[in-house]
Amino acid sequence: MKPFLIGLAIGTAILLFFINFGSSFRPEQPISFNHKKHHEQGVECATCHSYFKEQTFSGMPKTAACMECHKDSLTKHPDEEKIKQFQKNGEEIPWKRLYQQPDDVFFSHRRHVALAGMECKSCHGDIGQSEKPPTKPWVKMTMKWCMDCHTKTKANNDCLACHV
């Protein structure tokens, strides 16, 4: 029994290490973007995420897109100055990606949004009402999560429809 306990201790240590490593990663976005405020000003999702109707990906806003409205200071928020700094240096805002498909999965926004008529909400939750940038995805996108919906809606469930 004793060796088992030692093993248990080692195992727990390993686990704690990974949990620590895993949870310590809370991606901090470079700009503390307020979805809600933008939404209230009548900014559509597609204004910043320009491609989700036409491409497989949705895209993150370029500095230039921000500057269209924020050229003259609109707020007193310090992050507005940050954007200007990025633009001055000719840099793009280094947004952190939260939603990551595994490498062998083909996912198309266009297929889900433009063809199936789904709303952003169905996968991304009430992101439009959030005041702070999220630090983790709204839902952990497991294959089960995808397939539950596919089964319910009788969408294509061929492996090759998503695995390339």
Partner: peptide
């Protein structure tokens, strides 16, 4: 003993698996 030890470690990791699932690795 060594095998038992492995079993112990395995048990700990398996128990923690649920937690593991929703933490995310750096992209």
């Amino acid at each position: 003993d060594f095998l038992k030890m492995g079993g112990g470690a395995g048990a700990a990791i398996a128990l923690g698996g649920g937690f593991w699932k929703w933490t995310q690795f750096p992209p």
